[in-house]
């Protein structure tokens, strides 16, 4: 099952498994390559995205803030990788921005 421990992750982030330079190299590729890398990184660590019990709260808050957007499988995997401390938050954002724009 998922290694993305949604409810046990500490507030302080531990060191990620990839350096910013390594992630930047991935981010400089195209969307398909980024998606393949994300699936591979998650698959190798048996990480899956599982919605948290606060999903409905998060969705309601998003609707109230006029930001009712749907994230796809890759974006959810990026969140799961961050929660499993495979990526830092900045690395997750960098990869998501690149994935969406390339």
């Amino acid at each position: 099952m998922s290694a993305a421990t949604h409810f046990t992750a500490p507030l302080q982030s531990s060191p990620a498994m990839f350096t910013d330079e390594q992630v930047k190299c991935i981010a400089n590729t195209d969307s398909q390559t980024i998606a393949a890398w994300v699936r591979s990184a998650a698959g190798q660590r048996h990480i899956m995205y599982t919605p948290s019990i606060l999903r409905k709260f998060a969705e309601a808050a998003s609707r109230l803030s006029d930001a009712d957007v749907e994230l796809d499988e890759i974006e959810h995997l990026l969140i799961a990788l961050r929660r499993a401390h495979v990526l830092t938050q900045r690395q997750r954002t960098m990869l998501q921005a690149a994935y969406l724009q390339r």
Partner: peptide, 17 residues
Amino acid sequence: DVIAKLEAAAFKDNVVD
């Protein structure tokens, strides 16, 4: 549109904490 998705992901990632 990309900004909205970056914000949504950041929110989902951190709302529990």
